[in-house]
Simulated assay, not measured.
Amino acid sequence: MTADVTTKTAGEPAASAPSAPLAPFRLDGRVALVTGSARGLGFEMAKALARAGARVAINGRDPGRLAAAAQAIAAGCGHEVETLAFDVADHAAASAAMAALQARHGRLDILVNNVGARDRRSLQDFTPAEAERLLATDLLAPMLLARQAAGYMAAQRHGRLITVTSIAGQVANRNDPVYTAAKAGLTGLMRALAVDHARDGVTSNAIAPGMFATETNQGLVDDAAFSAFVDVRVPMGRWGRPHEIGAAAVFLASDEASFVNGHVLTVDGGQTVRM
């Protein structure tokens, strides 16, 4: 598979090296790639980064859905939003798309590794091939994207690697072993990158979302019994609203987080601290 690269809305000059100091939590001049961002939490993080001034490229497998998402984000930020249509598990296509993005702008400042597939089954029900496929998408693909991005960032002496894990990487639920293992692995990867690239001017952090009322979770949101569980389990007594994830990504991408490295920012309404 080859990468389908398009742009939406009127073009602008390519981003130049960020000038310092920026206004607090501004990302003007920064170039960002957010994977899995045609909808859900990825879309909200991409939108927040764009509104903070970053030149954002969004990713997904469906060009039509990406185009609609790009138009929606551009309408809110007033500048170009690029689309990169590729499957993160297609390593050749992913690498080519990231290389093209970096070449086009001369830099890559922010990578948000957001793509994550889920398959809730007992480990006994997985064949080895099925487990490998899920791990290829949820762990190996972001690992390889982070490796490539870190190379660009180290060369320019600035970068932000942001990995979207999950509270499932910290606490486990029944019949979710492969996804849980992948998310825990991503946390370990994030910390390793934080150590390896800190002196290159590159930070590595993670966002661990809790239960958010995204399109993917709509069936559970509509389930009265499950929503009653959320009311009890989450101290704030509700689902997370998708837009509430955006500021976490902006913070970790910003200069204000310049000494935050190797950290998991949990955004779960307090779910993981409740007895």
Rank of each mutant, 00 (worst) to 15 (best):
P235K: 13
A181V: 13
R238M: 07
M236P: 02
W239V: 04
S227D: 01
G219F: 03
R241Q: 07
V230A: 02
A249E: 03
V234A: 15
T203A: 10
A253C: 13
F212P: 00
I245A: 06
M211C: 05
D222R: 14
A257P: 11
L220T: 11
E256D: 13
A206T: 04
G210M: 05
L189V: 09
E215I: 07
K183H: 15
I207L: 06
V230Y: 11
T214C: 00
R233V: 11
D200I: 05
G188K: 00
D200R: 08
S258A: 15
M190G: 07
D255R: 08
T216K: 12
D200L: 03
I245H: 12
A181P: 09
D196R: 13
A194W: 07
R241M: 05
A253M: 08
D223C: 13
R233A: 15
G240M: 02
D255G: 01
S258L: 12
A192K: 00
N217Y: 12
V195A: 01
G246P: 07
T214Q: 02
D200Y: 09
I245Q: 10
A247V: 10
V250M: 10
G210D: 01
E244D: 06
A224Y: 01
A184H: 14
A253S: 13
G240H: 04
D231K: 15
D196Q: 09
S204L: 07
M190L: 12
T187V: 15
A224E: 14
A198Q: 14
A224M: 12
P209Y: 02
V260S: 01
G246S: 12
S254L: 00
V230R: 06
A194F: 02
R191W: 02
E256N: 12
R199L: 11
R199G: 04
N205A: 09
L193C: 08
A206Y: 11
A249D: 08
D231T: 13
E256C: 10
A182C: 11
T214F: 03
F259Y: 15
R238G: 07
E244F: 09
D223T: 08
A228G: 14
V260E: 05
I207M: 15
A228C: 11
G246E: 08
